[in-house]
Design a protein around this nucleic acid. Sequence first.
DNA 1: ACCTAAAAGCTATCCCTTTGCGTTAGCCGA
DNA 2: TCGGCTAACGCAAAGGGATAGCTTTTAGGT
Lengths: 189, 189
Amino acid sequence: MSPKPMARPGGRSARVQASVHAAVRELEAEQGRAALTVPLVAARAGVTPSTIYRRWGDLQELLSDVAVERLRPDTEPADHGDLRADLTAWTEQFLDEMSSTAGRAYIRDALLGDPDGGNAGQCSAYAAAQVDLVLARAHERGEDGAPAREAVLDHVVAPIMYRILFRPEGLSAEYARELVERTLDGLPG
Amino acid sequence: MSPKPMARPGGRSARVQASVHAAVRELEAEQGRAALTVPLVAARAGVTPSTIYRRWGDLQELLSDVAVERLRPDTEPADHGDLRADLTAWTEQFLDEMSSTAGRAYIRDALLGDPDGGNAGQCSAYAAAQVDLVLARAHERGEDGAPAREAVLDHVVAPIMYRILFRPEGLSAEYARELVERTLDGLPG
DNA sequence: ACCTAAAAGCTATCCCTTTGCGTTAGCCGA
DNA sequence: TCGGCTAACGCAAAGGGATAGCTTTTAGGT
């Protein structure tokens, strides 16, 4: 869903998409996102602007697609021996990446040009998959008392994302640890 | 912070702002947000486009300001006699308003044109103020065991907003009630 | 190898955006 | 109350991004 549905997934369409995505990443690194325009990206990608407008609609949807790609986790959660350590470490890394300047920008872009919510849903799916890996590992170890996937999304991931988007202050590794503790131990507020 | 800082808060500046905001609301109701353009809003407001560009920067920042206004709660949380009933009722209403088509659009707009996060922070402040009212009322009644304001934001408000933004499916009054129960009773996931 | 249709190229036009300059109007001190 | 100061607005022109019709190319199917 990240790339628009292509009736013809192979050949030229795929090359154009790759070329345009690469152009966005290059120009973003070179000149910053504020300087990005559709004609500029098109020129770098070696296509005409109308191609981009037809495939993506506007610049925001294109940036949304690229942002989702960059938000895809590139590594599996590390194995630290038990659920608590695994979840704590993953949460701290998640908070670090997402609350960075670049992370915030990608999150905003992903949400931005996203009429049907497909791209945003993909972001959540990435986090859910990572959480599932951690929980599945705990299950294999025979650990009991592991929370449900939904509980982790609601009470660990959601508070972090909410603060990133709505409350730019007060995020720390300590906060991440507290969220995990509370979810695992069930302490009331 | 919702309106841009005005070195001269009174007189013409205030009139222009009110006129422009009104024009946005009118045109949005008449023709839908997709049809909104800066020149169109300017014409309806009786100002020139350059005025809007100078004051707000671009259309998204203007829409962000208007969206924050519309997200401001217009009533105090109702009093149902005890904390649990108050918080449950408020949460259900909050979910209803925020997850509606209009609510989602306003949230997106508020987040969208918001370079410094001030508008998004205002949205969170609105919710925090409402929660504070509910908690203060419980305190006045002498109820103990009330959660901290932060706990409610993290474990009731945040999951709702996360799902609205990232997981468009699976929101219901029942879900809102579960979040409140879990926060008040401290059940683990 | 041909035929078909989807996708990209091309071009012209529209109008949004930006900018410089002149004018107005609100605020403040005398 | 009056006059000066300055921020804010109106105006107009230029530049460029967005959009649409039409043509050309390319991939996939027969």
